[in-house]
Computed example of a mutant assay.
Amino acid sequence: MNNRYKIELHVHTKYSHDSILPFWLLYLKCRICKIDYIAITEHNNIAGAKAFKKYCEQRGNKVNVIIGEEIMTNSGEIIGLFLKENIPSGLSPENTINNILKQGGIVYIPHPYDKKREKTVLLERYISENKEKIHCMEIYNGRNISNEYGRKQEQLAQKYNINGVIGADAHTFFEIGRNYMLVNIRPNSAIKFLKAIENKNIKMSKCLNFCHYLTKIDKMINFIRKGDIDGFCRIINKKFRKFM
């Protein structure tokens, strides 16, 4: 009988602007939930993934880290997995995808449909134009607040014949270990990852709505830490406008 490896994709830590999740707590939750492979995909940097990989290596490689980055293009977000170098934000989707491929990485489309996060959703025209270069797409995202979004995402993956994956999109301790895949092949390279996800079992859990509120608090904490009072005020003003 083949071994089963638990993979959790699309995870943020204190290296993202909207998370304060510390490494020790993430590592503890990974061990409790028996996560074998975790893809750290900070916003616009690979520093967090590289740092957490080193953290896990110092503890005996009981948790294996996939180096990733969630990159904001000029038309929505794209994730790169198995990266070696940081990819800058603000590029076109095509240039971002080509940069991922130059590194031998995996092109991964996160939350391709989400009405609550439209600013970060990659426009469908770019999925259509680059479908031959896209390796996988989320058919479910742990932060989708509506089941409709998951159905639409699965339809998009089928429409463009792109392999579907489950993305945790975890920013907090509470979200780790709730959305993952079980595979028979150890996904320790881009090629093996693609082979592994051809035959997978998936575990999906309903969005924890309160985690969206925690993320807003985390953003404010990070603004305060950096001394960015303008950023802090923008969030406060945005919340107040909803009640006016």
Rank of each mutant, 00 (worst) to 15 (best):
L123I: 06
H10R: 06
E8T: 07
K29R: 15
C136Q: 00
A47P: 01
I134E: 00
I87C: 09
N95Q: 12
F240S: 05
Y213E: 09
Y180A: 03
F223Y: 15
K116F: 12
L194I: 13
C33S: 12
S189L: 12
F223P: 00
E85R: 14
Y213L: 12
I229Y: 14
I7M: 05
D230I: 11
K119M: 13
D218C: 15
E69Y: 04
N209V: 10
F23L: 13
L28P: 00
I106M: 04
E8Y: 09
I46D: 02
T215N: 15
E138K: 05
Y113R: 05
D169V: 02
K34Y: 08
Q103E: 12
Y149D: 07
N201K: 14
N61P: 06
R186G: 03
R143E: 02
K200T: 09
F82H: 01
N163Q: 15
L101N: 07
K195S: 14
Y15A: 10
A47M: 12
G48N: 10
I217R: 10
G104K: 13
I127Q: 02
K34G: 07
M204K: 15
G227T: 11
R151D: 06
R143Y: 03
Y113L: 04
R31A: 10
L156A: 02
S89F: 10
F210C: 10
N222V: 11
E57W: 09
I32F: 12
S16D: 13
H17E: 13
R225I: 12
Y213K: 10
G68C: 09
Y15C: 09
Y108W: 11
N61I: 07
H212S: 09
A168C: 05
K226P: 05
V63T: 11
I236S: 05
G105H: 02
I32R: 14
I106P: 00
L81R: 02
I78L: 06
I32S: 08
P187I: 12
L156I: 15
R4C: 10
C211G: 00
I139F: 04
I224S: 14
K119H: 13
A39V: 04
N45C: 15
I139Y: 03
K54G: 08
